[in-house]
Amino acid sequence: MRSGNPALKQSTFLDLGSGRVVTRDGGVMTLNGTVNKTGFLLLLSLLTAAFAWHQSTIALPNGEMAPAAGAGIYMIGGAIGGLILALITTFKKTWSPVTAPLYALVEGFFLGSISAMYEMRFHGIVFQAVLLTFGTLFALLMAYRSGLIKPTENFKLGVVAATGGIALVYLVSMVMQMFGMNVSYIHGSGVIGIGFSLVVVVVAALNLVLDFDFIESGVDAGAPKYMEWYGAFGLMVTLVWLYVEFLRLLSKLQSRN
């Protein structure tokens, strides 16, 4: 079992297929339980996102919106806090019933603030990104359940390699920007920039397929009950990534108009 999502890596269920799994609360991971917890995490992130959106914008006399003074606090604080909680959850899976909801709440601040910034520049972009994100989620889920997409080992290896490559490109880009070198051709609205964003969106979407397969494997292996929270957290990580990449892609496309 392999997933490009760092939260759902190969070793997560490594020992669960041995038949020696003992759950402290007598429960085991179920698909319905994971789905319900994913919905709960999405609701939590929506609540804090709505708050951050409101706090990140101010209404001008002409009816337009402008960034509020503390908008960056929610964006930066949410991003850093979400990263810390994601790392804690990844390395301490048994804490996921607590850290996963905290991650969703903190990540909501980031999502609400960054969404408000994009919306002020490109009206309607957030609604489009939300529709594309959840449309992609349900389309791939149906394709996976119907067997139209089969996560073979070669498929998984390709997605993992592509995900790692994208992470490396982003890391190098960040380091270069720290030294005053801007990689405009992948972040700009030119053909290369749009093409790069399309590739990233596709790879992020394919990670959903790996996540579905990984969670289903955990259910079949009789994983402990707390792994429902961990599986929901893993899906949240991918959905957040996919949503942000849709925002980036749509902003590049609208910048050309």
Score class of each variant (00 low, 15 high):
69 A>W: 00
53 W>F: 11
87 L>S: 12
80 I>F: 11
47 L>A: 15
81 G>W: 12
39 G>Y: 06
21 V>P: 04
18 S>E: 14
68 A>Q: 11
105 L>S: 01
67 P>I: 05
67 P>R: 03
97 P>K: 01
80 I>S: 08
43 L>T: 14
35 V>Q: 04
68 A>C: 09
16 L>Q: 10
103 Y>K: 03
37 K>T: 12
54 H>R: 14
40 F>C: 03
17 G>D: 00
29 M>L: 07
51 F>A: 13
69 A>Y: 01
84 I>A: 11
96 S>D: 08
44 L>Q: 05
47 L>N: 09
78 G>Q: 00
49 A>F: 07
66 A>I: 10
61 P>Q: 03
17 G>N: 02
63 G>Y: 03
25 D>S: 04
74 Y>E: 01
69 A>Q: 10
34 T>Q: 06
83 L>F: 13
52 A>E: 05
78 G>R: 00
66 A>H: 02
88 I>A: 12
79 A>P: 03
56 S>A: 11
43 L>I: 14
61 P>H: 06
17 G>P: 00
79 A>W: 11
77 G>L: 05
65 M>A: 08
36 N>I: 13
79 A>S: 08
66 A>E: 00
79 A>I: 15
81 G>Y: 11
19 G>E: 03
25 D>Q: 09
99 T>M: 05
91 F>M: 08
84 I>Q: 04
85 L>N: 00
36 N>K: 14
24 R>N: 08
17 G>E: 00
67 P>H: 03
33 G>E: 02
97 P>S: 06
69 A>N: 08
54 H>Q: 14
21 V>R: 07
83 L>M: 10
88 I>P: 03
26 G>A: 04
66 A>C: 00
67 P>S: 09
19 G>A: 11
95 W>C: 08
92 K>V: 15
58 I>V: 15
52 A>Y: 07
24 R>C: 02
48 T>K: 00
62 N>H: 09
30 T>P: 00
16 L>T: 10
81 G>D: 10
27 G>L: 14
27 G>T: 11
68 A>H: 05
72 G>P: 08
30 T>C: 01
63 G>H: 00
90 T>Y: 10
89 T>K: 05
82 G>W: 12
63 G>V: 08
23 T>E: 13
64 E>D: 13
99 T>P: 00
99 T>V: 04
31 L>Q: 03
16 L>M: 15
23 T>H: 07
95 W>F: 12
31 L>A: 07
60 L>E: 13
32 N>Q: 10
47 L>M: 14
82 G>L: 10
37 K>F: 07
72 G>L: 12
40 F>G: 05
99 T>Y: 11
20 R>F: 12
44 L>Y: 01
36 N>V: 12
85 L>F: 03
83 L>K: 08
90 T>D: 12
30 T>S: 06
98 V>D: 02
18 S>Q: 14
26 G>H: 02
41 L>F: 03
82 G>Q: 08
32 N>P: 04
35 V>C: 02
94 T>F: 11
77 G>Y: 06
34 T>S: 09
32 N>G: 12
99 T>W: 13
28 V>Q: 13
37 K>Q: 10
35 V>G: 01
95 W>M: 14
95 W>I: 11
72 G>R: 07
40 F>R: 09
61 P>R: 05
45 S>Y: 00
74 Y>S: 02
58 I>N: 05
78 G>E: 05
96 S>V: 07
40 F>N: 05
68 A>I: 04
102 L>P: 06
70 G>H: 13
80 I>E: 06
49 A>S: 06
